[in-house]
Design a protein around this nucleic acid. Sequence first.
DNA 1: AAAATAGATAGTAATCATTACTATTTGTAG
DNA 2: CTACAAATAGTAATGATTACTATCTATTTT
Lengths: 148, 148
Amino acid sequence: MKQKMWTEETIKTELREHGLRATTPRIAICLQLLQQHCHYNAQQLHEELSPHHPTMSPNTVYLTLNQLATVGLIRSFNVNGNTIFDSNTTTHDHAHCRHCNTLVDLPSTTKSLPKTPGKMSDWALEWGTRLWSGLCPDCKQVTDTTSR
Amino acid sequence: MKQKMWTEETIKTELREHGLRATTPRIAICLQLLQQHCHYNAQQLHEELSPHHPTMSPNTVYLTLNQLATVGLIRSFNVNGNTIFDSNTTTHDHAHCRHCNTLVDLPSTTKSLPKTPGKMSDWALEWGTRLWSGLCPDCKQVTDTTSR
DNA sequence: AAAATAGATAGTAATCATTACTATTTGTAG
DNA sequence: CTACAAATAGTAATGATTACTATCTATTTT
């Protein structure tokens, strides 16, 4: 996991290179999201930023996250109807616990991202993520010992 | 793609084996979903069934689909915030066009479902699907010729 | 075969995340 | 430092899904 070091300056540059203005809310969102290597939804991110940016509206967070995903600075995917934003843009999978909703990273099973779907030669696929569904260690135990 | 032939009788049996009553709405939903091998969301399914089952409430469709997914008769996953139900429970991937929203099946890149995540020995993973994101043949052309 | 009962349904209301709208503000190019 | 296009905040609107409850029905019991 190569961790790129992000500073306010590098983020500003990155934003502009993607045709986005380097505004205060955007920089804050990027700093939070890119420095922490974990999964956020829009609300969580807004809650985290609110203390230091009281006027930042949820709306802005939603909009910004979608823009960042569109230009490819982050990835977004959906788990259980919840939109998750991931600053880790390398190819990797996820495991989701259907009981407690935990989501963790998994090394990708297929590193060769474009190879497999190459069979569908007409599609221009850009990225993919695999979502495994099941029970995390804790919940596995609980469901083992209690019911069934 | 082995296509199991479903009749009202086999569906009734299947439902009961999974602890679900063989009710009229449920049988209708199963017939529609299991016979057609494609991706439905709850609303589409309700629209398809409404003509023949005018009193069937959307609520029932939502509930039933979730139950069927819970017992493993169908799979559910999320694309772009849209919950999709899939009667194809074999391991396979999906390709999604971010422009026109088309969703198609792809043969799975990893047939050995439990092997890879076995590294996370503590998780009890049950199934997984990979979602590829990109542009379908049609939209690829459009975006090529028009903008950018 | 009729009665009992636990589960399922329909219909309505409520919820939740997300998007739409718009007047105001703010980066950035000139 | 001005001008303009883009971004923001705040509010309202949307749309999918869930919650609730009285009624109904499949299945079990008698």
